[in-house]
Amino acid sequence: MKTTAKLFSVLFFLILIFSFTPDDDGDRLVGVWAPSNGKARIKVEKIGNKYYGKIVWLREPIDPVTQIPKVDKNNPDASMQNVPLKGYRLLKDFIYSGKNEWTEGTIYDPENGSTYSCLITMKDNNTLDIRGYIGLKALGRTDVWKRLEIKK
């Protein structure tokens, strides 16, 4: 009886442990990443249960025409065209769906004000395939992002 009770307790707590195991896999996306064109650096963070990526650095932060920090001048909503690009969340609403993929999210291109469906695939811990597409995944383009580390 004592042995049975012990075994039962072990089993119960094991179930508890595994059901509360932290979701580390999805959190591997968190960090700073550089798109292939080198024009920006994107910081991915987790808010709630979803992942978001915002611009934290721009190679050319000042608009050469207006001489002020770049803003979202191509936003289709005219009332939002003065939102600064630094701090802008390009990647939104991604959830980790297993197998090194983050789905259900979108990517915004401030160059033309378009929002694309997006699939993020982690090729290795330091490399992402960011595929923006329209409707079908075939109608899109993949960009390779590399993880960055802050120099000490």
Partner: peptide, 12 residues
């Protein structure tokens, strides 16, 4: 934003 809907920018 909520857990099961898209983040919306509403003001700035």
């Amino acid at each position: 934003v909520s857990n099961s809907s898209e983040m919306k920018k509403v003001a700035f």
